[in-house]
C-alpha cells in the first residue's frame, strides 16, 4: 500500500512535457550560441593555417618559387581561380619574383601500405620533369614507410625525374632518368609514391597547356573573397 503511494507521488512529481522540452531547448540554444561564437572567432585563423600549410607545400615542391595561384580546369582549359568550389580538383602554378612561370604543383593520391597517401609534386612542363615531391598526408608505418617523407635522400629522388616512361621504383640503384631508389624495408610505400605520381601525370599532363602558354600570374587587387585561395 505504502509503495503505491510513493509511486503515485513520483508520478505527480513528473515534470510536464513542456518543462522537459523547455530545458532541452534552452540547453541547445545556449550551446548553439557558444558554438557559433567560437566558430566565428577561430574561422579566420583556421583558414589562414590551412592556406599557409598549402603554400608551404607548394613552395617546397617547386624550387625558387615565391608566388602561387590556384588553377582549375574549366571546359578543358586551365583558369585562374580564387574562390573555393565544391568538387574542384585544383592544381597550383608557381611563379618566381619576376612573375615567370616555374612549374605546376599537382596533388594526387592513391593507396599506400597502410592508408591513402596524398602527394603534392612539382612538375615542370618545359622539360617534362618532376622537380619536387612532398607528402601531404599518409599513415605509413612509423620508422619504415614514413621514410617516404622523413628520408631526405628518398625525397631528393624526385628533384629531377623524367616522367616518360612512367616512373619506376627500383631496389638495385637507379640508373635511368625515370627511376627512383626504393627505400629498403619500405618497398611498397616507395612503389606507391611512384604510382601516385604516375597517376597524376596520366591525368594532368595531356590537359596542361603547351609549354609557354601557361596562365600568367595575376596580381590580385585582393577582392575580399580572393583571399582564401590566394592568401598571397
Amino acid at each position: 500500500m505504502s509503495e503505491d503511494k510513493v509511486e503515485q507521488a513520483a508520478v505527480a512529481d513528473e515534470p510536464s512535457p513542456a518543462r522537459l522540452i523547455g530545458t532541452l531547448a534552452i540547453a541547445g540554444l545556449v550551446s548553439g550560441v557558444i558554438i557559433i561564437a567560437i566558430y566565428l572567432a577561430t574561422f579566420e585563423t583556421i583558414k589562414e593555417n590551412k592556406a599557409r600549410e598549402l603554400r608551404e607545400a607548394v613552395f617546397r615542391v617547386l624550387p625558387n618559387v615565391s608566388k602561387m595561384q590556384k588553377l582549375l580546369l574549366k571546359e578543358g582549359k586551365l583558369e585562374v581561380s580564387y574562390k573555393e568550389e565544391k568538387g574542384e580538383e585544383p592544381i597550383y602554378a608557381g611563379y618566381d619574383d619576376n612573375n615567370t612561370f616555374m612549374g605546376y604543383a599537382i596533388p594526387s593520391d592513391g593507396p599506400g601500405f597502410a592508408d591513402t597517401i596524398s602527394v603534392l609534386y612539382g612538375y615542370r612542363p618545359s622539360d617534362r620533369k618532376v622537380i619536387g615531391m612532398w607528402i601531404l598526408a599518409s599513415r605509413e608505418t612509423p620508422g619504415l614507410g614514413d621514410k617516404i617523407y622523413k628520408d631526405a635522400a628518398f625525397v631528393a629522388n624526385f628533384d629531377d625525374l623524367a616522367i616518360e616512361p612512367p616512373i619506376v621504383a627500383t631496389k638495385r640503384g637507379k640508373s635511368k632518368p625515370n627511376e627512383i631508389d626504393a627505400i629498403t624495408g619500405a618497398t611498397i610505400s616507395s612503389v606507391a609514391v611512384a604510382r601516385i605520381i604516375n597517376k597524376g601525370n596520366d591525368y594532368w599532363v595531356s590537359r596542361l597547356p603547351e609549354p609557354g602558354a601557361e596562365p600568367a600570374y595575376v596580381e590580385v587587387e585582393t577582392p575580399p573573397e580572393a583571399e582564401d585561395a590566394q592568401a598571397q
Binding site: T23, A27, G28, V30, S31, I34, I38, Y39, T45, I46
Partner: peptide, 21 residues
C-alpha cells in the same frame, strides 16, 4: 541529453581553439 549537450559544447570549443592555435 543535457549532459551530452554541455559536453559537446565544450568539445567543440576545444576543437576549434586547437585548430586555430
Amino acid at each position: 541529453s543535457c549532459f551530452i549537450i554541455i559536453i559537446a559544447t565544450f568539445v567543440t570549443v576545444v576543437d576549434y581553439t586547437l585548430a586555430a592555435a
